[in-house]
Design a protein around this nucleic acid. Structure first.
Lengths: 207, 207
DNA sequence: TAGTGTGAAATAGTTCACAGCC
DNA sequence: GGCTGTGAACTATTTCACACTA
């Protein structure tokens, strides 16, 4: 069974929600309820659950615990990987703090920076290494993912370093597109472009 | 002419690129060159430029300065809006710092937080107000956009406050979907979901 | 009888392919 | 001859609609 990127993203969201419901001792839930809480249509939810091969029953809906486990197992098998973060600036630190708090399935095991004053420090439980050590650390920990929060002009260079070290997926926060070989995958998070797009598409109330 | 969200996002990216080319005294550029630098196909670039009604010429390509101005004017007319940021935590500060540095078309004019120790402080040139003042400040500055970097449990409440105050577009970094009326628009930036999706879709090199 | 499973329609977005121009 | 403009084909994703079942 092949899942589309969008479907995977939604599954991750469903799973968070289901964990909450489970904690609240809810046993069964209808697609409509999931849709409401998650903010999309019930048809979409039903289709997503269908594609992962999970069936509900018309009377009660979906079994919360069972479904949560099903999604968890599915994601765990492929998404439980290690990540390295390069660029311990404001944004990098924010992400490290956030991940320490939320403990996502994908764990950040090492941080890298060029600034000597940051090296050797613990940032949100994550040791900061000099950038030159990236290849060694990546190999040692068998790291698959890179989070790029370096300044734009450095992004391509650091990305190349990551790819050479064995990283195959990059989450890029720098506002520059990366050129990568076809076996690698880049997910772009361009906050300013998002903001400008939102601004463009939003109708003002102030005339 | 109606532009799709994706097209708008790409236009913002083209514009950044064109500004760089202009600074480097490049007069003309081919769609292929833009595509290479931006990381998509030349056909797509041509189509995007076509939809905004700009024509190149087969011999030289597109006039850099003229095209940059065209896109800038287009985005400026609808995207030059003011934004307010709620939640001056790590992520909030990172975004404020980033925007101060990059000076996007959309300016962040006020920050809000509940923590008394932050109130009254300047954070990257932006004054931090108590959350209760949001309605007043939003009206006063005629703010259209809200950036939500508060903890997940607060997100909906703060979003409601923003919408009530007159904000019509929200960039939401909290990992919860927001329920908003149909005249409002939410852009979700879920960093952890992105990371997990990337992890899922990436093939490991380490067996 | 409300809610599921799912083929089919609709919509959104991307790429192809080729005529026409410089 | 290489590059643009663009209809048409294609792919991806969402929504509709309805038979079916507990």
């Amino acid at each position: 069974m092949e899942l589309s990127p969008k479907t995977v993203e939604r599954l991750a969201i469903y799973q968070r929600l289901l964990a909450e419901l489970e904690a609240a001792d809810v046993d069964y839930v209808h697609s409509q309820a999931i849709a409401d809480m998650v903010g999309n249509t019930s048809a979409q939810v039903r289709r997503d659950l269908m594609t992962i091969g999970y069936s509900g029953n018309p009377a009660r809906g979906y079994a919360v615990r069972e479904l949560r486990l099903k999604i968890e197992t599915l994601l765990d098998r492929r998404a439980r990987k290690k990540a390295a973060l390069a660029g311990v600036g404001m944004l990098g630190r924010a992400i490290l703090a956030y991940c320490e708090l939320q403990k996502p399935r994908t764990e950040i095991v090492a941080a890298f920076d060029v600034d000597p004053s940051k090296i050797g420090k613990l940032v949100s439980g994550c040791l900061c290494h000099p950038l030159e050590e990236l290849p060694r650390v990546v190999t040692e920990h068998r790291i698959d993912l890179g989070i790029l929060t370096v300044p734009a002009p450095e992004a391509q260079r650091v990305a190349d370093l990551m790819l050479l070290a064995g990283i195959t997926g990059i989450l890029n926060f720098a506002p520059v597109p990366l050129r990568v070989p076809s076996w690698a995958r880049v997910e772009q998070v361009d906050i300013l472009a998002k903001l400008e797009t939102l601004a463009f598409l939003t109708r003002s109330r102030w005339g």
